[in-house]
């Protein structure tokens, strides 16, 4: 493989690692939202408000 080939493979791998890392954060966030939706479907008004107050802060 030529030097440029090694360069491309290296950066591609690192970009994939960053993409995967970011994907795990996004997926965690989505699962959190799903679990919150499940909780809100049965929650009392007080706990719902507490959750909303917490979740309203952005990441």
């Amino acid at each position: 493989m030529e030097g440029m080939g090694y360069l491309a493979v290296a950066y591609f791998g690192m970009l994939m690692a960053i993409a995967l890392w970011t994907y795990t954060v996004v997926r965690r966030s989505q699962r959190l939202e799903d679990r919150l939706a499940a909780l809100e479907s049965v929650s009392t008004p007080a706990s719902s408000q507490e959750v909303q107050n917490d979740m309203s802060g952005e990441l």
């Binding site: 499940a38 909780l39 049965v42």
Partner: peptide, 16 residues
């Protein structure tokens, strides 16, 4: 499954 989970008081755990 939601009505069944609700009957068993597990609806809030559906996504866990």
């Amino acid at each position: 499954a939601a009505p069944f989970l609700a009957a068993f008081n597990l609806k809030h755990r559906a996504k866990d």
